[in-house]
Computed example of a mutant assay.
Amino acid sequence: MRSSCRRHSLLVPALLCACVVLVAQPTAAVGDSRGMQASGASEPGPRVARLYQEAAATTQQYERVRREAKARRAEAQRLQKLLARERQQIKTLHKDLGRIARARYRGGGGLPYTVQLLLADTPEELMRGHRVVWQTDLAVDQKVARSLRAEARLAADEKQAAAESRKLQRRNAELAKKKRAIEKKLEDAQWTLQRQADASAAAGACRKATRLDQPDRGSKRGWVAPVERYALSARFGGSGARWASRHTGQDFAVPIGTPVRAVGQGRVVGVSCGGAFGIQIVVRHTDRDYTQYAHLAAVAVNPGERVAPGQWIGQAGTTGNSTGPHLHFEVRSTPELGSGVDPVPWLLKHGVKL
Rank of each mutant, 00 (worst) to 15 (best):
Pro259Glu: 09
Val144Phe: 07
Ile90Asp: 11
Ala145Tyr: 09
Arg67Glu: 13
Ala298Gly: 08
Glu54Ala: 13
Val65Arg: 01
Lys167Ser: 10
Glu164Trp: 02
Val20Phe: 01
Leu175Asp: 06
Arg284Ile: 09
Asp137Asn: 11
Val269Arg: 05
Tyr293His: 07
Gln315Gly: 13
His326Tyr: 05
Ser147Phe: 04
Arg180Trp: 05
Gln315Ile: 03
Thr258Ser: 10
Glu86Phe: 06
Thr92Ser: 15
Ile182Tyr: 10
Ser147Tyr: 06
Ala298Tyr: 08
Ala41Ser: 15
Gly98Gln: 10
Arg267His: 10
Gln53Asp: 15
Val30Gly: 06
Pro259Phe: 03
Val132Leu: 13
Leu10Phe: 07
Cys19Ser: 14
Thr323His: 08
Val331Phe: 01
Ala276Phe: 04
Gly108Trp: 04
Gly304Val: 05
Ala28Tyr: 05
Tyr293Asn: 03
Glu174Met: 11
Ala28Ile: 01
Trp243Met: 05
Glu183Tyr: 01
Arg50Leu: 13
Arg242Gln: 12
Glu125Ser: 14
Val227Glu: 02
Gln169Ile: 03
Leu51Lys: 09
Asp32His: 15
Arg85Val: 08
Ser233Asn: 09
Leu22His: 13
His94Gly: 10
Asp213Lys: 14
Leu111Asn: 05
Asp213Ser: 14
Ala253Asn: 04
Glu68Val: 06
His326Pro: 01
Ser147Leu: 14
Met36Tyr: 05
Lys185Trp: 02
Lys91Tyr: 11
Ala120Gln: 07
Ala297Gln: 01
Ala262Pro: 06
Val254Cys: 06
Ala84Ile: 05
Ala202Pro: 02
Pro215Tyr: 07
Gly324Asn: 06
Thr318Val: 05
Val268Lys: 02
Lys91Val: 09
Lys179Arg: 12
Glu68Met: 08
Met127Lys: 07
Ala199Trp: 00
Ala14Trp: 00
Gln142Pro: 00
